[in-house]
Design a binder for these strands. Sequence first.
DNA 1: GAAAATTATATTGTGCACAATTAAATTTGA
DNA 2: TCAAATTTAATTGTGCACAATATAATTTTC
Lengths: 157, 157
Amino acid sequence: MKKPLSPSLLLDEQLCFALYAASRRMTAVYRPLLEALDLTYPQYLVMLVLWERDGVTVRELGERLQLDSGTLTPLLKRLEQAGLLGRRRRQSDEREVEITLTDAGHTLRVRAAEVPRCLAEKLCMSVDAFTRLRDELKNLATQLASPTDPTPIDPGE
Amino acid sequence: MKKPLSPSLLLDEQLCFALYAASRRMTAVYRPLLEALDLTYPQYLVMLVLWERDGVTVRELGERLQLDSGTLTPLLKRLEQAGLLGRRRRQSDEREVEITLTDAGHTLRVRAAEVPRCLAEKLCMSVDAFTRLRDELKNLATQLASPTDPTPIDPGE
DNA sequence: GAAAATTATATTGTGCACAATTAAATTTGA
DNA sequence: TCAAATTTAATTGTGCACAATATAATTTTC
């Protein structure tokens, strides 16, 4: 009598829906905070990367955030229009587009520092619980990204 | 010396990004499985609700999935075009649109039953770990949905 | 019982996500 | 060296999400 791992089609038993719903709730909580900075949530993520290291390429941004150019190109153009960053082809390799923060882009970081504080308040979690859940989600993403890992047989192409 | 709860702006320390990335990875894993059923992931969620209880209104679907009519109306029209469901105004209250599965919609459930099995394989998690993570995410969503819970002062409107 | 308020859905517009294709620059290799 | 393969962005098209607005049906209140 071994109970199989979630063979259910009941919505409330799905891990995927709990994840999907929590993720949308999370961005909904960020929305009013980021609105004050004139940023959307994905734009905020791009800014986080750039505040860590300026002058990265679109490809590097994409690797970090797991987003492709179809998403990033228009998003970066909007941030450029907003005056937060500049985009230009690299001299060394004209295929690459380098993203650099403007002064306004750098300055925004100060106001953005409030955002994680507001969220910490909202979360009401211990540092331990926060770290544990975050790392569990990272592990989950890693497991989900594994090529064909648990598939019994797959000769591939 | 009390360390504050995640006052960091580093991408890899954010719970929100771990959540966002894991959620997108999850739907990416579902995508090829659902493609075989000609469903997108949000369409699959709608079908899960309808397989549990047929004849619900758009409003009830929205409450269950936390999606509004701006998302559901076109999605439901696509499922109607695909022949999986029908939409008609309720006699008792013409404001409401009742969604009912067609025979094809009911039949699809059989093939969909394979989906959670494929995912369980991919996840490689114990039932306990699965359940615990799912319920932690539900709790997180609940906490994030709480109106103004941890805000010190807010006289409101 | 009619005006006002509420409720339910649809519509419009913006901004992601992501697949598929295109185009240009660079690298590789016969 | 030069043609083929690879790499990087951009473009195009579809389908969510969600805010804001519109519209129509129903309920409430006087």
